[in-house]
Design a protein around this nucleic acid. Structure first.
Length: 422
RNA sequence: GGAGGUGUAGCCUAAUUGGUAAGGCAGCAGUCUUGAAAACUGCCGGGUUUACGCCCUUGUAGGUUCGAGUCCUAUCACCUCCGCCA
């Protein structure tokens, strides 16, 4: 959510900026409603003040055994007016809220304008794209050959897109999770969090999954809970409706969770194997910090993620997303993509974003600045570090050998327990 | 799932038959001091306002009332006991 005051005072600028993203919003209507709201609020406040003052008088008169019938009669009509104002106010606030929840965040000045993914900018490419002197197998073949993942049985017990990891497949998943968490905690200073996998409606709204991405989430309707599409949701909502101490910032949280996504619109080649699935594992990075620090913290997350990909020796590139390809809540996003030699394309394994105060405003996460004593919204950032399935594809495909075996990256070996799959 | 109890600001604790949230601790600033402690003064939930001020806040949402921490309804969290359960 954007600052209503900022919109009011910079209407043209905001219109221009959000026009660069693909989310329509009726800001003119907001301006009208906002003006009406403030008018009514001030009138209602005056009446409430009158009621408070007179009610006190009535109390004093009653105590002195006097007659307050006239004042009480007046207050009856005043109270009725207040009630009418409050009803109208609630209607307006509901309407404003609906608009505001659909106004996207304003892109950072460093973000390139663009219509679609073609306009994203590659800012760094790392590693050598491997050359093979034998026919390259796709990950779908490799997982079958080594019995790492059983897609058919997964489809049987749950549905298409619910892979069953088994044997070395299950083990390498566990190894990757351990590697990621250990690095995030020991090298980058994050605190490990193991959160609930289901969240309530307020949490889903707090991080911006509702109302924008409702169709992407599985819902436990009887209990009004949502299966998390990313641990960003619980990791940020931990602090919902809180005022944090300045001394506690920045907060660095990392968490491993399964993630659940309905992904209704996907089809075709993209979903082959484990390229895109309904349930997958991910280790997430979340930061809560002061506004003036968020872009430095953003750069640090990007560096951390790149560092981990290098540790796995995975050829990858960084993309600065253009305005048209960004999500609603972000001001700036850098995607990390790993090279798939069999599919001959780049696969997204991480997305690092700064939400500035957008999520904080929605989720009402603030901090008290010691120097001024004032309460301000925090900035929130998140990044994957990393998502497992495509990272696994990268490892399997890039490290395959002529004899069909797969070498395990050195950094992963101590977690995996051996140096190859064969 | 059943029964009972408890929710007041960071923490602890008051508030008469309904009369508009008292106080303490911690914390922050200042005075005093060589420095510190102690003592004293002010601040010490949120919003809004240049400011004075005003509005909101007793878990949450409603209701009754001129007026609700207090009465009524619903709901949530925690504690105790019972049941079920990895």
């Amino acid at each position: 959510m954007l600052d209503p005051k900022f919109i009011r005072e910079n209407l043209d600028f905001v219109k221009e900026q959000i026009g660069k993203k693909k989310y329509p919003a009726d800001l003119d209507k907001f301006i009208d409603l906002d003006a009406e709201k403030r008018k009514i609020l001030s009138e209602a406040d005056q009446l409430k003040n009158r009621r408070n003052v007179v009610s006190k008088e009535i109390g004093a008169i009653k105590k002195a055994k006097g007659n307050a019938d006239e004042l009480i009669a007046e207050m009856q009509t005043v109270s009725k007016s207040i009630q009418e104002f409050d009803v109208r106010l609630k209607e307006i606030e509901l309407a404003i809220n609906e608009i505001m929840l659909n106004v996207p965040n304003i892109p950072h000045e460093s973000v390139p304008f663009g219509e679609n993914p073609n306009d994203n900018v590659t800012i760094e490419t790392w590693g050598e794209i491997p050359k093979f002197d034998f026919p390259v197998l796709e990950h779908t073949d490799l997982i079958e050959k080594h019995k790492l993942i059983d897609l058919k049985r997964g489809a049987k017990i749950a549905g298409s897109g619910f892979p069953v990891f088994m044997g070395d497949g299950a083990r390498i998943q566990r190894a990757l999770i351990s590697l990621f968490l250990d690095r995030n905690v020991n090298l980058y200073g994050f605190t490990e969090i193991s959160p609930p996998l289901l969240v309530n409606e307020d949490s889903a709204r707090g991080t911006g999954q509702l109302p924008d991405k409702e169709a992407q989430m599985y819902e436990a309707t009887i209990d009004k809970l949502f299966l998390i599409p990313t641990s960003e949701v619980p990791l940020v909502n931990l602090y919902r409706d809180e005022i944090l101490d300045e001394a506690d910032l920045p907060i660095y949280n990392t968490g491993y969770t399964p993630c659940f996504r309905r992904e209704a619109g996907s089809y075709g080649k993209d979903v082959k194997g484990i390229n895109r699935v309904h349930q997958f594992d991910k280790v997430e990075l979340v930061k809560i910090c002061k506004p003036e620090d968020s872009y430095a913290e953003f750069d640090k997350i990007v560096e951390n993620v790149a560092d981990t990909l290098k540790a796995l020796n995975l050829p990858h590139r960084q993309l600065l997303l253009c305005t048209g390809d960004m999500g609603m809540t972000q001001t700036k996003t850098i995607d990390f993509e790993v090279w798939s030699p069999a599919q001959e394309k780049w696969l997204e394994v991480s997305s690092v974003s700064n939400c500035e105060s957008y999520q904080a405003r929605r989720a009402n996460i603030r901090f008290r600045r010691t120097s001024t004593g004032k309460v301000e919204f925090v900035h929130t950032l998140n990044g994957s570090g990393l998502a497992l399935p495509r990272t696994l594809i990268g490892i399997l495909e890039n490290n395959q050998q002529a004899d069909g075996s797969i070498l395990i990256p050195e950094a992963l070996q101590k977690f995996f327990g051996k140096d190859k799959i064969q």
